[in-house]
């Protein structure tokens, strides 16, 4: 990706974005490391609940994000992919070659 190549020339910020929330019942976060994310978009079709999209961040780089509409309901949206449901290799993590996606559960 061009914007990624840009990192070699322009000192860009990398950050860990925690999308989600903690409520009384626990912590529900999907974290994306912008340094590892290459904005390939493989996570988009991989997620059965379509929670991801790739967009330009505040610093002008392209990165995967969790859609705004899903950020407040990750506990429910991501429930089918919880390890307790028998899903061991989460589809989003499997699809993400650089390993940028981490879940809090």
């Amino acid at each position: 990706m061009l914007s990624r190549l840009g990192r070699f020339f322009v000192l860009s910020t990398s950050y860990i974005a925690n999308y989600g929330y903690a409520d009384g019942s626990g912590e529900y976060y999907v974290s994306i490391d912008s340094e590892k994310c290459n904005a390939c978009g493989e996570c988009i079709p991989a997620c059965p609940m379509h929670i991801f999209q790739v967009e330009e961040d505040d610093y002008g780089d392209m990165a995967a994000v969790v859609k705004e509409s899903h950020r407040k309901s990750l506990k429910y949206v991501c429930a089918p992919c919880k390890p307790t449901s028998g899903v061991r290799n989460l589809p989003c993590q499997k699809a993400c070659k650089p390993g940028a996606i981490v879940h809090s559960w």
């Binding site: 860990i16 925690n18 929330y21 903690a22 409520d23 009384g24 976060y29 950020r71 407040k72 309901s73």
Partner: peptide
């Protein structure tokens, strides 16, 4: 370098 925003709860 890292963030979280909780506006759900």
């Amino acid at each position: 370098t890292a963030f979280l925003m909780n506006d759900k709860c």
